[in-house]
Design a binder for these strands. Structure first.
Lengths: 242, 242
DNA sequence: CGGGCTTTTGAGGTGGCTCAAACAGAGTGG
DNA sequence: CCACTCTGTTTGAGCCACCTCAAAAGCCCG
C-alpha cells in the first residue's frame, strides 16, 4: 500500500524516471514532473557492455549521461601508455564535462552499464533555462573535486597496503552506504580487474595481488573466485587505510 | 588616453573591483555594475602573511574568498602527519567549498596573499539569487576537477624527475600564460618551499632537491638563490615532464 | 578438454626514502 | 662588521618498498 505522497510525486513522471536514482539523489532531482517530461524527450537509455568506450581523451564530447546502473571509469593516459584512473562514477553520477569541447579523460564502462543519455546541445540548453539543474551539476562537480582530492592523498602519501585497504573501503561504502561504521562485514563483487585497481592506485598488478593476499592471510577480507570480496573485519580494514 | 569602452564598463563599478582579476576572468565577471555594488557591500579585502591559515581541515567554513594576489595552497593531512597538497589557487580563483559545513582541506597562504573575503551566508544568498554567479562557480569547480585529475596522473604514474619537470611547467604557465609554447625561457620566484613542493608531488624534500640539481646540471633550468628559477630550455623541460 | 584470460607468487633489481651531515641566507644582537 | 641562530637547502650513503620479469596456476568459454 503506497502512501499518497508518492502518488503525487509520480503522477505525470515518465515511467523510466520513476525508479531512477538520478531523480532522487542525482541531477534530475532538480526537475518537477513537467520538466522531467521535457527532459525525457531528449534522453534515451543506452546500454554498454564492459569495456565499451563512452568518451575519448582529447576527442569531442557528443553527449552527456547519467549512470543508471554499473560503474564507469575515467582514465588518463600518458604518451608511453602509462595509465591512471582518475575517477569512478556510480549511479546516479553525471558523466561528461560541461562547457568543454573535448574530453580530458577517457570514459569506459567498467562493468555492464546503463546510461541515461542526452545530447550535448540539448543538455546545455536545458541547463541554461533551468538554474536548479545547474545547481545540481555544481554539487556533482564539487563532489568530484572532493573525491579527487581524497585520492590525491592516497596516491601521493599512502603505502601500497594503505592504498588497497582504502580502495576496498571506498568501494564497500559506495555499494552499500549503510556499512560505513558497521562492525559487521559485507560481500560484493569488485567492479574492476586487478589491472584496473592497479591503474587506480598507481601500483602494479603484482603489488595489488600481493596486498590482497596479505589481507586475506590476516583474515581482514576473504577473496573468492571471480572478483568476489568479502570484508570480514571492517574495523581492521579501516585501520589499515591510514 | 583611455578608450570609451572602459568608461562604460567602469562607470558605477566599485573602485576595488575595477582592476580586480576576478571581475575579468573570475567569479565576479558574472555581475553587472549594479550587482557588483551590492556584492561589494558584503566583501572586504583582507591580507594574509605567508603561512597564515585561511581554512582548517574538518573545521566549519566561516567565509569564502577570491584570491586577488599571491598563492593559496590546499592541503590534506593524514592522522600521522603525512601531508599532501591537493591544490594551488592563484588569482582570480575562488577559495572555499560551497554547500559544505566543514572544509575538507586546510587552506593557507603560501605567499603573502590578498583575498576578497565574503561571509558564507552572504555569498550563499547572492548565489541563490543570481544564476550567473552559480555558473561561474560551476566553471571554477570544473577547472578544479580537471586540474586535480591532471595531478592524479602525475602522482600515480610519473617518476620523480617527471613530477618536478611537470611542476615547473605548470607554475611557469600559471605565472605567465603566454609562455606555453614559447621556446624562449622565463624566470620566476617559486611560491613554494622545497618541503611544500615535496608535499605537492608526493616526494621528499631530498628527492625534489636532487631533481632540481639534476635539471640545473643538464642546463634545463637555472636555480638562483631565494627560490628563483630560470627556465633555460622550455622544450627540454616539457620533454622531461612525461 | 584445450586455449585464452586473469590472478597469484617468486626472485631479483632499483627508484626514491631514511638518516645524517654540511652548507647557505636572512635576521638579530653585540 | 662580525658572530650566532634559525630556517631552508644540498648532498651523500645505505636500505627497503615496490617494480620488473617470469613462471605457474585458476577460471571461463567454446
Amino acid at each position: 500500500m503506497s502512501d499518497g505522497r508518492s502518488d503525487i510525486h509520480t503522477s505525470g513522471v515518465p515511467a523510466l524516471c520513476q525508479s531512477c536514482e538520478a531523480r532522487h539523489n542525482g541531477m534530475c532531482g532538480a526537475l518537477n514532473a513537467e520538466e522531467l517530461l521535457t527532459f525525457a524527450r531528449h534522453t534515451r537509455v543506452v546500454r554498454h557492455g564492459a569495456g565499451e568506450e563512452l568518451l575519448t581523451e582529447g576527442a569531442p564530447i557528443a553527449a552527456y549521461g547519467n549512470v543508471m546502473r554499473g560503474v564507469v571509469k575515467l582514465t588518463k593516459t600518458l604518451a608511453d601508455g602509462r595509465r591512471q584512473i582518475v575517477g569512478l562514477q556510480f549511479a546516479p553520477d553525471f558523466v561528461g564535462r560541461l562547457y568543454a569541447d573535448e574530453s580530458a579523460v577517457t570514459a569506459d564502462a567498467a562493468s555492464e552499464v546503463e546510461l541515461c543519455r542526452i545530447s550535448k546541445p540539448a543538455l546545455e540548453r536545458l541547463v541554461a533555462e533551468n538554474p536548479m539543474l545547474e545547481r545540481r551539476l555544481l554539487r556533482q562537480a564539487l563532489r568530484d573535486v572532493d573525491e579527487g582530492r581524497e585520492w590525491m592523498v592516497a596516491l601521493g602519501r599512502k603505502t601500497a597496503s594503505e592504498k588497497v585497504a582504502s580502495f576496498l573501503g571506498q568501494i564497500g561504502r559506495h555499494l552499500d552506504p549503510t556499512v560505513a561504521g558497521d562492525p559487521r562485514g559485507m560481500a560484493f563483487e569488485l567492479p574492476l580487474t586487478r589491472a584496473e585497481i592497479a591503474d587506480f592506485l598507481g601500483l602494479t598488478i603484482g603489488t595489488v595481488s600481493r596486498e590482497l593476499s596479505k589481507l586475506k592471510r590476516d583474515k581482514v577480507i576473504d577473496v573468492g573466485p571471480h572478483r568476489e570480496i568479502e570484508i570480514i573485519d571492517p574495523q581492521a580494514l579501516e585501520h589499515r587505510a591510514g
